[in-house]
């Protein structure tokens, strides 16, 4: 039995009220949406907020619109299940729908939100454990200790970004809208991240993610998401691959993007690898050759560490495999790439 630490729950009905509560209580308050990540972490003694500001009753966070210009507006409180099942998202931003549909298991996708997945805490096999377990180990850099168990002598936390939707939103060049004490601000999702596993987001404690805006996609937009995990039914990613291809009228690739997750503290873009696809026909032998070259380049850039479950050398060997499969899935409009 895992008990939650004592806390009080506040139930604001507007974003402004929620921000006011976070400002009022400062460091001892935390926002809670679906709770599927925060509550296990609290049960493990990783967070002990005195006040939880529950965002579930805020209607503004449920916005879900595909605007006429193609902009997709997704409230932070929309469940992952709704995003995965939505025909508009499947059609216009397939990688995002696929990634949302591969987060955890069905019950967790109904409870968990897009905002919660974007704002997910980093994960490490030495950190996501009960207090008893961590105490027996002597704690770690990320919480209560001074030693890193991943990198001998390491002084910087390397817990892994493990959010499936984040790399797809990076390939889609999404903007995040935050509200805090100084009003609203928009942040390109690429600019959200630190490379510090303890706090991998540039964010004030008074700020709430309100919505995610995905700008209009190119006419020939194609996307896919690939996920490597231990069990096909539930786990966090051991590797996530988000791919975007913009295919021109002549069938050649005009734009490409590739972002990997679950390697280090932030999602990693492998830009130079993706650029190898520019100008290449999006099918046939030339495409297959270019994809193989991209996969090799991604392998050279990816260096998984023993921070999350799964042998890290095997995870590295899987990088070119999943990159190639995900690019082929994007080109052919299939996906997700996933084992069951």
């Amino acid at each position: 039995m895992l008990r939650l630490p004592k806390t009080r729950v506040a139930k604001p009905t507007t974003v402004a009220q929620a921000v006011a509560l976070l400002v009022e209580h400062g460091e001892v308050a935390m926002p809670i949406a679906g709770g599927t990540d925060l509550l296990p972490n609290m049960k493990h003694g990783l967070f002990e907020p005195e006040v939880l500001v529950a965002l579930g009753g805020i209607k503004e966070l449920q916005r879900f619109e595909l605007q006429t210009d193609g902009t997709l507006i997704l409230g932070a409180g929309v469940s992952l299940d709704r995003i995965a099942a939505d025909e508009r998202v499947q059609r216009t931003a397939p990688a995002l729908a696929q990634a949302a549909g591969l987060v955890a298991g069905p019950q967790l996708r109904r409870m968990g939100t897009l905002g919660g997945n974007v704002m997910l805490d980093t994960r490490c096999q030495w950190y996501n454990q009960t207090h008893f377990w961590r105490q027996a180990l002597g704690y770690c850099l990320k919480k209560d200790g001074t030693v890193c168990h991943v990198v001998a002598g390491g002084k910087k936390c390397v817990a892994a970004a493990s959010n499936d939707t984040a790399p797809t939103l990076m390939t889609l060049q999404a903007t995040l809208v935050f509200e805090g004490r100084s009003g609203r601000r928009e942040v390109a999702i690429d600019d959200l991240w630190h490379t510090d596993g303890i706090h991998n987001k540039k964010l004030g404690t008074d700020e709430i993610l309100v919505e995610v805006r995905v700008p209009p996609r190119a006419t020939g937009h194609r996307g896919a998401y690939g996920k490597l995990r231990e069990r096909g039914s539930i786990d966090y990613p051991m590797l996530g691959v988000a791919a975007r291809l913009d295919v021109g009228r002549d069938g050649a690739v005009e734009g490409a993007d590739l972002v990997l997750v679950a390697l280090q503290a932030r999602p990693v873009r492998v830009r130079r690898a993706a650029e190898l696809l520019i100008g290449v026909p999006s099918s046939g032998d030339n495409f297959a050759e270019a994809v193989a070259a991209v996969a090799e380049a991604a392998y050279a850039q990816a260096h998984p560490m023993p921070n999350i479950p799964g042998d890290h050398e095997w995870r590295r060997e899987m990088v070119p495999v999943y990159v190639a499969r995900t690019l082929h899935a994007a080109a052919t409009g299939t996906g997700p790439v996933h084992h069951v």
């Binding site: 709770g35 296990p40 493990h44 955890a104 019950q107 967790l108 109904r110």
Partner: peptide
């Protein structure tokens, strides 16, 4: 902690986890 599904109940008709 949300792994096993043994606590699944329906909330507004949808299977969700009572432990979380």
């Amino acid at each position: 902690k949300g792994d096993c599904g043994a606590c699944t109940v329906q909330i507004d008709g949808e299977p969700q986890l009572a432990c979380l």
